[in-house]
Design a protein around this nucleic acid. Structure first.
Length: 620
DNA sequence: TGTGGAGGTCTCCAGCAGGA
DNA sequence: TCCTGCTGGAGACCTCCACA
C-alpha cells in the first residue's frame, strides 16, 4: 500500500552527502556518457546556490522550480565549451548548407524566418542547440529518477509547468524547421499582417508590412522579396492611372485602403530606411537576421485562427509563399490628394534616391492617413510630421477622401487637393473643419469607451482569477483528503495546510494512472457536469484539478474518451463565460434551460449541437 | 441514440549513434 | 570530449464504425 508523505514532515532525510553520479538506473554506455557530465554540472551548480532549498539533504534534490532556475541561469546562458576548430568549421558549413537549401526551396514560411534568426543569433553568441539543452533536462530528470530509487526525492516529474514552458520557448527559438509546401494566404490574413506591421510601432514593422504586401501582391516568395534591389522597381506615374510601381515585371497600383497599399508601404519603408547603408538592397542583406518578415508569433496566431476555421494545419504551415490575392481588381486609380509643397519639403528637405523621391506625395499622403490611426508610431517623431501644416492636412484627409470618393463614383476619377483643381468656398471649408472636429471628437469618445471597456474586462478577469485561486486551494486540500481516505492515511492539520499551499507531495508513482471511472456516466445536466468538473462529485476530487495536476494520465482509456467528448460542453461553458456572462454556473443553467426548451434529452445530443454550431449565442 | 473499439495522426520524450 | 540529430515509444486526441 503506497503511503502519503509530506516533503517536510514524514520523509526521513539521510545525512547530507554528495550522491554518486550514477546509481540504480542502468543506461547504455553512450547515454551514461551523455548524462554523467551534465549531472555533475547540476551538482556543481547546486553547490553554488545559496537560496532556500539548496541546503542540507535537499541540496541536489531535483524539482521543477530548481530545474527551471538551472536552465535559465546556467544552461541557456552557457557557451559551447572547448569546441574544436574543425567542429566549428563543420557547423559553419552546415549552416551555409542549410541556407543554400532554404534559398533554393520553393517555399518559405515566416516562422522559419523567425526561427532562423534565433538559431543564427544563438550560434553567433556560442549558445547550445536545442538537442543539447534538452539533453541537460533529460540528464537532470534521470537524476531525479535515481533519487526516487534512493528514497530521497518525492517530487513529481519536473518536466511540467515552468520547465515545460521554458523548453517550449527554447524549442521554438532553436529547433530547425523543415521546409513546407507552398500555399497561398487568404486576403484577410494578409490584411491582418499588414495592419500588424503598423501596430508594432517600429521600423521593422513597417518593413515587414511592405514585405508581406509585396509577397502577396506581386506573388514573390520570401527569398525573392528579401533580395529585391532598387533596380527591380520602376515608377509609373501618369494622369490616367496615378502612381504605380512595377516590380519584377508586375505592375502594382494604389489601393483604397492605405493599410494594404503596397506603393504607400514602399514609400514609408524607403523613408524610414533612407539612412541605412545596405548598397542596392531594399531590405538589406539576404542573410541579414534582421530581415525576418515578421515575428513568428503573429503567424502562429493567424494559423491557429485559420485552423479553428477548419483549414488543414499542414496546408497552413507555409504562409509566405503566395499568389497575388491582394490588389487584383481592387485598386482605385486617382485616389491621391495633392500634398502641399511645404509639407513635402519638411518631410524630405533634400532630393533623395530616385525611387523615394518619386514617391514623396504618396509618402506624405499615406503617412497622414496612418497618423490618424497610429499617432504614437515613432515614425511620426520626424520633424516633417510634427508641424501644424501636416496636422491640418491629415485632419482634412477623411473628409477629402469622402469628397474624392463621391466625385469619383459620379464624375472624373482624378480629384486633387483644394486650392488646385477643386475650389472650395470659405463656407465649404468651414463645413469641412466642423466635420473634422466632429470626427476627432467621435474618435476620442470611441477610444475612451474602448479604454473603459478594456479596464472593466481586466477587472472582471482579475476577480475571476482570484476566485479561481481560492477554488484551487480548496480543491487541493479536498484532493489530498480524498487520497488520504483512499489509501487510509491519516493527515494532520499541518499536512492539510501544506496541501493547500502546494508543498505536500505523494510518494505514489505519478506515472501510474488511477484505476476506475472518475467521470460519472449518469450525469445528464450541464450544471451537474460543470459541478463535477470544478468541484468534484460523489466524494471524488474535481476532474479539473486532476487534469491540471496530472494531465490525462489519471484517466483510464475509456474515461479519457468520455471526458474528451464531454469537454466539448465544458469548453463551451467556459467560452461563453469569458464572453460577458456573469459566471460558468449561469451559463450551465442557461444551457440546461435550452436543452429543456429544445427537447434535447442527453448531453451527447447537446455536445453534437455545440460541435455543429447549432446552439444560439444568446440563451435565455 | 449512446458508447466503446479500432486505427490514424501529431507531439513530446528518452535513449542512442555518430561527427568533429 | 562535446555536441547534434535521429528514432522508437508513449500519450493525447480525433474520426469512423459496430454494437447494445
Amino acid at each position: 500500500m503506497p503511503a502519503i508523505r509530506t516533503a517536510h514532515a514524514h520523509i526521513p532525510q539521510p545525512p547530507y552527502a554528495a550522491p554518486p553520479a550514477r546509481e540504480g538506473v542502468e543506461h547504455a554506455f553512450k547515454t551514461t556518457q551523455a548524462y554523467e557530465p551534465r549531472q555533475k554540472e547540476w551538482h556543481s551548480w547546486c553547490d553554488g546556490q545559496t537560496a532556500t532549498g539548496f541546503a542540507g539533504g535537499e541540496r541536489y534534490t531535483v524539482k521543477e522550480e530548481k530545474l527551471a532556475l538551472f536552465l535559465e541561469e546556467y544552461v541557456l546562458k552557457r557557451t559551447i565549451a572547448k569546441r574544436p576548430a574543425s567542429a566549428a568549421r563543420a557547423s559553419t558549413a552546415s549552416n551555409e548548407s542549410a541556407e543554400g537549401t532554404e534559398s533554393t526551396a520553393s517555399t518559405e514560411s515566416t516562422s522559419e524566418a523567425g526561427d532562423d534568426d534565433s538559431a543564427e543569433s544563438t550560434a553567433q553568441s556560442g549558445g547550445l542547440g536545442w538537442s543539447s539543452n534538452s539533453l541537460y533536462v533529460a540528464a537532470v530528470v534521470d537524476l531525479r529518477r535515481t533519487q526516487q530509487q534512493r528514497g530521497t526525492n518525492t517530487h513529481y516529474n519536473p518536466r511540467s509547468g515552468r520547465v515545460q514552458a521554458l523548453l517550449a520557448t527554447v524549442r521554438q527559438q532553436l529547433a530547425p524547421k523543415k521546409p513546407h509546401p507552398a500555399r497561398s494566404m487568404a486576403e484577410g490574413d494578409v490584411v491582418k499582417l499588414a495592419q500588424d506591421g503598423m501596430v508594432r510601432g517600429c521600423k521593422e514593422g513597417v518593413r515587414d508590412r511592405l514585405m508581406v504586401l509585396l509577397s502577396h501582391v506581386a506573388g514573390l516568395s520570401g527569398t525573392e522579396v528579401r533580395t529585391l534591389e532598387y533596380s527591380d522597381f520602376d515608377l509609373h506615374a501618369d494622369v490616367d492611372s496615378g502612381v504605380r510601381v512595377e516590380v519584377k515585371g508586375r505592375v502594382v497600383g494604389r489601393r483604397e485602403d492605405v493599410e494594404c497599399c503596397v506603393v504607400g508601404a514602399l514609400a514609408l519603408h524607403l523613408f524610414l530606411a533612407q539612412d541605412r547603408q545596405e548598397g542596392d538592397k531594399v531590405f538589406g542583406s539576404a542573410t541579414d537576421p534582421k530581415t525576418a518578415i515578421s515575428d513568428a508569433a503573429h503567424f502562429h496566431t493567424l494559423r491557429s485562427a485559420r485552423v479553428r476555421q477548419g483549414v488543414d494545419k499542414r496546408e497552413l504551415k507555409c504562409l509566405m509563399r503566395a499568389s497575388p490575392v491582394v490588389g487584383t481588381g481592387t485598386e482605385r486609380v486617382g485616389r491621391d490628394i495633392e500634398v502641399p509643397a511645404e509639407i513635402l519639403d519638411a518631410v524630405l528637405p533634400e532630393r533623395k534616391e530616385a525611387l523615394l523621391d518619386g514617391l514623396r506625395s504618396v509618402l506624405v499622403h499615406d503617412a497622414a492617413v496612418l497618423w490618424l490611426k497610429h499617432p504614437s508610431h515613432p515614425m511620426f517623431t520626424h520633424g516633417g510630421f510634427q508641424g501644424s501644416a501636416f496636422e491640418a492636412f491629415a485632419s482634412r484627409i477623411p473628409t477629402q477622401l469622402s469628397v474624392c470618393s463621391a466625385q469619383a463614383s459620379s464624375g472624373p476619377q482624378l480629384v486633387t487637393f483644394p486650392g488646385t483643381s477643386v475650389q472650395l468656398t470659405a463656407e465649404q471649408m468651414g463645413e469641412i473643419d466642423r466635420a473634422v472636429a466632429g470626427l476627432i471628437t467621435q474618435k476620442m469618445d470611441a477610444r475612451q469607451r474602448e479604454h473603459d471597456q478594456q479596464l472593466a474586462e481586466v477587472k472582471q478577469g482579475l476577480n475571476r482569477l482570484q476566485q479561481s485561486i481560492q477554488r484551487d486551494a480548496r480543491r487541493k486540500a479536498e484532493f489530498f483528503l480524498f487520497l488520504a481516505d483512499k489509501f487510509n492515511v491519516a493527515l494532520d492539520a499541518e499536512d492539510l495546510d501544506a496541501a493547500s499551499m502546494g508543498s505536500i507531495t505523494a510518494t505514489r508513482n505519478d506515472d501510474t494512472p488511477d484505476a476506475g471511472f472518475y467521470v460519472d456516466r449518469g450525469i445528464n445536466r450541464v450544471v451537474e457536469l460543470w459541478t463535477e468538473y470544478v468541484h468534484g462529485a460523489n466524494g471524488k476530487p474535481s476532474v479539473q484539478s486532476l487534469v491540471q495536476r496530472q494531465g490525462f494520465r489519471w484517466k483510464s482509456d475509456l474515461d479519457r474518451k468520455f471526458f474528451t467528448r464531454r469537454s466539448v460542453i465544458l469548453d463551451e461553458v467556459e467560452r461563453r463565460a469569458q464572453q460577458g456572462e456573469p459566471d460558468e454556473e449561469t451559463v450551465a443553467g442557461k444551457l440546461d434551460s435550452y436543452m429543456v426548451k429544445m427537447g434535447i434529452r442527453s448531453l451527447s445530443q447537446l455536445q453534437d449541437r455545440i460541435k455543429q454550431g447549432d446552439v444560439p449565442e444568446c440563451l435565455e
